[in-house]
Structures are given as structure tokens and as C-alpha cells.
Computed example of a mutant assay.
Amino acid sequence: MATVGPVSSPGTTPESLAKIKVGIVDDDPLVRSALGLMLGGQADIEVVGEATDGQEALALVRTSAPDVVLMDIRMPRINGLEATRRLMSEPQKPRVIVLTTFGADEYVVDALAAGADGFLLKDTPPPEIVSAIRAVAAGEPILSPKATRTLITRLRAEPTGERAAAAGRRLEALTEREHEVALAVGRGLSNAEIAKELYLSIPTVKAHVSRLFDKLGATNRVQIAITVHDAGLV
């Protein structure tokens, strides 16, 4: 599992990559404006729309199809957590980064359980927000250092017998290879690292991860990791 930091690949630059379409969802116009100005200066990022609450966010995704949505939590009508849950049911669901001023433990866990691929505080430095967008667009979950500590604390807590048993039952449905990939995801390995460790191609790893989403009822890698940890396997 990645934390916020620079994201780049050898031989590539932001200018050589396809533009990442981003939607901004926040009820504060100053926040939307600041994020828009910051992202507007990136050669590989395009802001395709803004929304003032979760209900507008659903419409934004259906009309503009952003790759990544920056989602506030506390908003009128539909809050960011509920909007994220609903977006995960969309035919073309985006990646979601929850960007909030609230770092409370329950928000971190709830956001990830809802299907968010990232959790950042709004005081995160702009370059790190940009790096997080690029990473999430590439399929890597991103958590702020505080959110990472919160999740680690949650995973280290002794799972209840019921939760551990439920996680174990879900994992029993996996093939041997899928089980190996799930354990690797639970250890925080990237697709490239899993491919190297299990002697697989990266496309094959991606295919296995996609099947894990279906079989485990997960919408992102963090949820796979939580299932593995709940089962006591990592």
C-alpha cells in the first residue's frame, strides 16, 4: 500500500502521458477554486467538472466520466461517504480520493470501506496531492501518513471471531494462485512486485486482482488487504 510521495516511471514525463480526467466535489467554493487552479497547471491532468455535494457528484460522473474524483466528506444532501458508495455501483466507476479536513479514525475506515482508493487531509502539500492523483489513476491506493497509521492500528487489532470467520469463508472461494495474489496484496505489494515474486506477467497479476474484486466483493486493493488481515493471514 503506497503512501503519499513522488510517482514517476523511467523514461516517462507528465507531458508524455494521457491526461487524467479529474472531478472536484466540495461544498466550499474556495476549496474548489484552489484545487482547480492547482490542477490546471499540470500538463497531464484535466479538471472535467465540479460538484457541490454528493448528489451533483453522481451527475458529474455520469456526464463527464472523470478518472479520479476528489471527494469531500461533509456536504449537504448526500455526503461524500454515501456518494462514494453509490459511485462504486456506476458502470464506469471512477477512482475516488477522499480529501477532507477531518482525520478522525472512523472516517478513514469508513471511506475505504465505501470504496475510496485514497484518503488525504486538505492540508496535504499540493505536490503530494498531484502525486496522489497520478498514483490512484494508475491503480495504487494512497493514504496520508495519519490515515496509514489509523489503518495499521485497525488491522493490528485482534479481529472478532465473527469477522475473522467471515473473511476466511470469502478466501476459501479463491483458487490457489488467487490466494497467493491476495496475500501479496495484503502485504502491500504492487502489481509489479507481485509479478516478480510469483513469476507472473503483470497483465496476469492484474487479471487475478480483478477476479479478487469479484470474489471478495471488494472495490479496491485496500479492501482485499483488510479481508486478508481480518482472516489473520498477514
Rank of each mutant, 00 (worst) to 15 (best):
Y107A: 02
L87T: 06
Y107I: 12
E50M: 03
V109T: 13
L70M: 09
M88I: 15
R62V: 02
L58R: 12
I45Y: 00
Q92G: 02
V68C: 02
P66W: 00
I97M: 02
L87D: 03
A65H: 10
T100H: 13
P66E: 06
A111L: 02
E106A: 10
N79S: 11
V68Q: 09
T63Q: 14
N79W: 03
G49P: 00
R95L: 03
N79M: 01
I97W: 08
G54R: 02
D53T: 06
V48L: 09
D105K: 15
S89I: 01
P66C: 13
R77M: 15
V98H: 05
V108H: 10
S64G: 09
V69L: 12
R74W: 10
Y107K: 13
D44I: 12
G103S: 11
G80V: 04
L58M: 10
V68L: 06
A51Y: 00
L99P: 09
D110H: 10
R95H: 09
V108D: 14
E82L: 06
R74C: 11
A104Y: 08
V47A: 03
V61N: 14
E106N: 06
M88W: 06
V69T: 07
D53Y: 01
G49T: 06
G54Q: 00
E106Y: 15
P66V: 14
E56K: 15
E46Q: 15
M71N: 10
V68S: 07
V98F: 04
Y107S: 04
D110A: 09
G80C: 05
V61G: 05
L99M: 11
G80W: 03
E56V: 10
L70E: 09
V96E: 14
G54W: 00
R95K: 12
A59H: 06
D72I: 11
R85L: 08
A51G: 00
M75E: 03
P94D: 04
Y107L: 08
E50P: 01
I97S: 04
P76R: 07
E106R: 12
F102P: 09
V61K: 00
P91T: 08
G80D: 00
A83F: 07
R86T: 07
E82S: 11
R74I: 10
T100S: 13
A104Q: 10
Q92Y: 05
T52W: 05
N79P: 02
Q92M: 13
V108I: 13
A65Q: 12
P91N: 07
G103F: 08
S89A: 11
V69E: 01
R95D: 08
Q92C: 05
A65R: 04
R85P: 09
V109F: 15
T52G: 15
V68D: 05
G80H: 02
E50F: 12
T52M: 15
